[in-house]
């Protein structure tokens, strides 16, 4: 392919597309520094006031803490589950593999509201109090499905006979995992931890149905949207979440794709 037509109409389109994806979101950080209570042009001047106020707010700090309390265990548990499941489906011949995989992947397509109300009803029936724990329970299937997806492409990226060689040389299942599999899939595991944490941290629908009196950060943000005078503070908060998510995800993706890029470019 000649370099001349590399950027043509298609290149222009691609750049506009990225602009369409990114620019709307960039208004959040932009107005979070604007010295006005109204989100409107013209910009009035630079201020850090909204960030200061955001950190002063008890509700915000406690909901931030809640988000961590949910996100960290969810990331660890769902990555462990996703890795196990990915290993099972990539390494063993078994009947019913396709339907089982589709079943595990369903949380990625079922509308969040349906899962949310279903869990809300069942929690109510069996008398479980809504709390951070119920949010975490709701997040795990979704995050585990993503994790399995990430780990499958990582596990398919290396030769199965590596593990067989380890068995052949006298190591059992556990030591084979630690000495061979784990080092080879480590980038995938790190990526999975970061991404599942981000998903749980940012998730709103399930958290809003199942949180009870303990809001996570997105739920808190949503509740603040009703009050116009707190809008700039919410913008500051949103901008921070955006930056942190972006950094986490960028590193995760970089980690995840760097290793497999050459061998399996389809490992998206």
């Amino acid at each position: 392919m000649s370099t001349k037509n590399k950027f043509g109409a298609l290149g222009v389109f691609a750049v506009s597309y990225l602009a369409f994806v990114y620019i709307p979101v960039l208004f959040l950080p932009l107005f979070s520094f604007n010295d006005s209570i109204y989100v409107a042009f013209p910009l009035k001047g630079f201020t850090m006031q909204w960030y200061y106020e955001a950190f002063q707010s008890d509700g915000l700090m406690s909901s931030l803490k809640n988000s961590f309390k949910v996100g960290v265990p969810v990331a660890i548990l769902s990555t462990a589950l996703g890795t196990l499941a990915a290993k099972a489906v990539t390494r063993y011949r078994m009947p019913g593999k396709a339907p089982v995989m589709s079943f595990i992947m369903t949380p990625l397509v079922v509308p969040g509201i349906i899962v949310g109300v279903a869990l809300l009803i069942i929690a109510n029936m069996i008398g479980v109090t809504l709390s951070l724990f119920t949010i975490a329970i709701a997040h795990v299937p979704m995050c585990a499905a993503f994790s399995m997806w990430i780990m499958i492409s990582r596990l398919e990226g290396f030769d199965k006979s590596m593990e067989e060689a380890s068995f052949d040389l006298g190591e059992g299942a556990w030591m084979t995992f630690w000495r061979v599999t784990f080092p080879l899939i480590l980038p995938g595991i790190i990526a999975s931890l970061l991404l599942t944490f981000t998903i749980s941290f940012d998730e709103f629908i399930l958290a809003s149905f199942l949180g009870g009196s303990e809001p996570t950060l997105p739920v808190y943000m949503w509740s603040q949207l009703r009050f116009p005078n707190t809008l700039p503070r919410v913008l500051a908060l949103g901008a921070m979440i955006l930056v942190v998510s972006f950094v986490l995800v960028y590193f995760a993706e970089w980690f995840r794709r760097r290793g497999t890029q050459i061998k399996t470019s389809s490992g998206v």
Partner: peptide
């Protein structure tokens, strides 16, 4: 990475 990052970040935002 540029097209995947929004995939993972806050839908609400």
């Amino acid at each position: 990475i540029l097209i995947t990052v929004p995939f993972w970040t806050s839908y609400l935002l």
